[in-house]
């Protein structure tokens, strides 16, 4: 369903700060895949996601989603097919707007925005039921500014927004990394619930190896702008953190995994 063909991306090409972020990435996702992505800092994980979402243009290669070439489509047009949750909880929602207004904006993703009401009464009722599932008491605070919510609450709302409108692909960029462990676990549980319920094809970047092994049906490891391992099925189920560490050490030729990975 998603096909990434030989994608290259270099930042600040030709300058002293030149950074080859992606050097020929090939990846094919199947319908319903839940893929976890790991790799050290600067391995190209986030760049890969940003290429799919169209934050920056690709230098070379193509990205094909469900048979349509989206390589040259601007970011806001691709949004129709994609649900996104960012690492920074502030990024996924408009802090100055109300909870219901944020949800309503997501509910209109990929649709023409006219002069009809921004939120209808009927929608507010639907949002209440949706928010109730989060069990955070937000269903009674529809008119609160999102800026008043905690990081975890904002991330939960973003997750709801990302899964609205049945996206073809859900992209999670270390979406629990900025949360405290307890909240992170809650948001992660919610992620599992949403993904298994709606069977959205999902790509999740994480720094937590245990999560990377426990969640999903497939795991890919990136290093130096390339995918170096792609493990799925039974093989993935039997993986241990120590196996991943070993693979990682081998790949980075002696350089050891960074501290964040060791600690988690």
């Amino acid at each position: 369903m998603l096909e990434i063909r030989d994608v290259h991306k270099t930042f600040n090409a030709g300058t002293i700060n030149e950074k080859k972020a992606l050097t020929g990435v090939n990846l094919t996702l199947n319908d319903g895949d839940f893929v976890t992505v790991i790799g050290g800092n600067g391995a190209g994980k986030s760049t890969l996601l940003n290429m799919i979402t169209g934050v920056y243009p690709v230098d070379k290669g193509s990205i094909i989603l469900d048979g349509t070439d989206i390589t040259k489509l601007p970011e806001h047009k691709r949004a129709k097919f994609l649900g996104r949750v960012f690492q920074d909880p502030m990024t996924g929602t408009s802090g100055g707007m109300q909870i219901d207004e944020n949800l309503a904006i997501a509910a209109r993703r990929g649709k023409f925005r006219s002069l009809l009401p921004g939120v209808t009464k009927k929608e507010r009722e639907e949002f209440k039921t949706l928010l109730k599932k989060l069990d955070l008491g937000l269903e009674n605070r529809l008119s609160s500014k999102v800026g008043l919510l905690s990081g975890g609450q904002r991330q939960a709302v973003t997750l709801l927004m990302a899964s609205m409108q049945n996206p073809k692909l859900l992209l999670l960029d270390e979406h629990t990394a900025a949360l405290d462990p307890q909240t992170a676990a809650k948001v992660l549980a919610l992620t599992e619930e949403i993904v298994s319920e709606s069977k959205i094809t999902t790509l999740m970047i994480t720094h937590n190896m245990k999560d990377a092994i426990r969640l999903g049906n497939r795991l890919i490891m990136m290093n130096n702008g390339q995918i170096i391992y792609d493990i799925s099925g039974e093989e993935k189920k039997n993986l241990k953190v120590s196996d991943l560490m070993e693979l990682f050490a081998k790949a980075s030729s002696g350089e050891f995994a960074n501290d964040r990975m060791l600690l988690s």
Partner: peptide, 28 residues
């Protein structure tokens, strides 16, 4: 009235958080 419409919402959202707006299909 205008800033309560779908279009008005997208203008407000653009000023508030451009990255979120684009992620939700708004042409900022």
């Amino acid at each position: 009235w205008f800033f309560g419409t779908e279009l008005g919402h997208s203008i407000r959202s653009t000023g508030c958080n451009a990255a979120m707006s684009r992620a939700n299909g708004i042409n900022t």
